[in-house]
């Protein structure tokens, strides 16, 4: 049952959890829906880990599983794996000094990564999970995590260095 300990643990990871949802989903509304759904499921669950570390893994896994379920339901898996149509806004000219714009640029570049790279980078860099934890959470070998993290960062660096920061169409519900 979701008791005081779990609420306390949840408070400690809310932002990271939501950031992870945003990393998985292509628009904020879908991320909010996913995040809220995950919390509702968590609060309704019968067996909720009480420990901080185990709760954190459990919560991220729950959210990710919901995301996968949603993808299956919506039959959009292939669409997600396909790069979105891009609209070049590089002429907007990010200065590199404005933290808001930087964050926007990072997010835009990040969302152009493949699903696998977004997933693993979000868990490591946003969620703060170790490679071992990420491997367990995703059900893949640790070496694969290491490889994906590296490739994701290289791809992200290429996007940013080359000024290839572009916006994607904002379509409600696109995961």
């Amino acid at each position: 049952m979701f008791g005081a300990d779990q609420h306390s643990n949840l408070d400690g990871i809310r932002r990271k959890l939501f950031a992870y949802a945003r990393a998985l989903c292509r628009d904020r509304h879908a991320a909010e829906d996913l995040y809220q759904d995950a919390l509702l499921r968590a609060m309704s669950a019968k067996d909720v880990p009480a420990g901080t570390a185990s709760f954190r893994v459990w919560m991220f896994r729950l959210l990710r599983n919901l995301w996968i379920d949603n993808l299956r339901t919506q039959k959009r898996r292939e669409a997600v794996l396909t790069r979105v149509e891009l609209t070049d806004i590089s002429s907007a000219g990010h200065s590199g000094n404005d933290p808001v714009l930087d964050r926007l640029a990072i997010r835009e570049a990040f969302m152009q990564l493949s699903k696998e790279h977004r997933d693993v980078l979000a868990l490591v860099d946003i969620g703060g999970f170790s490679y071992e934890e990420t491997a367990e959470l995703l059900g893949i070998p640790r070496g694969t995590v290491m490889s994906r993290v590296s490739r994701g960062r290289v791809a992200l660096a290429a996007q940013l260095v080359e000024g290839n920061v572009v916006a994607f169409p904002t379509r409600r519900g696109r995961a």
């Binding site: 809310r14 932002r15 990271k16 959890l17 939501f18 950031a19 945003r22 990393a23 909010e32 995040y35 809220q36 759904d37 919390l39 509702l40 933290p99 930087d102 964050r103 990072i106 997010r107 990040f110 980078l121 979000a122 860099d125 946003i126 703060g128 960062r153 992200l156 660096a157 940013l160």
Partner: peptide
Amino acid sequence: IKAALARLADDPAPDVPII
């Protein structure tokens, strides 16, 4: 890049009702 991605978690989580 690692630091920039970590800052994405600075955005507040939505404080809206689930239902």
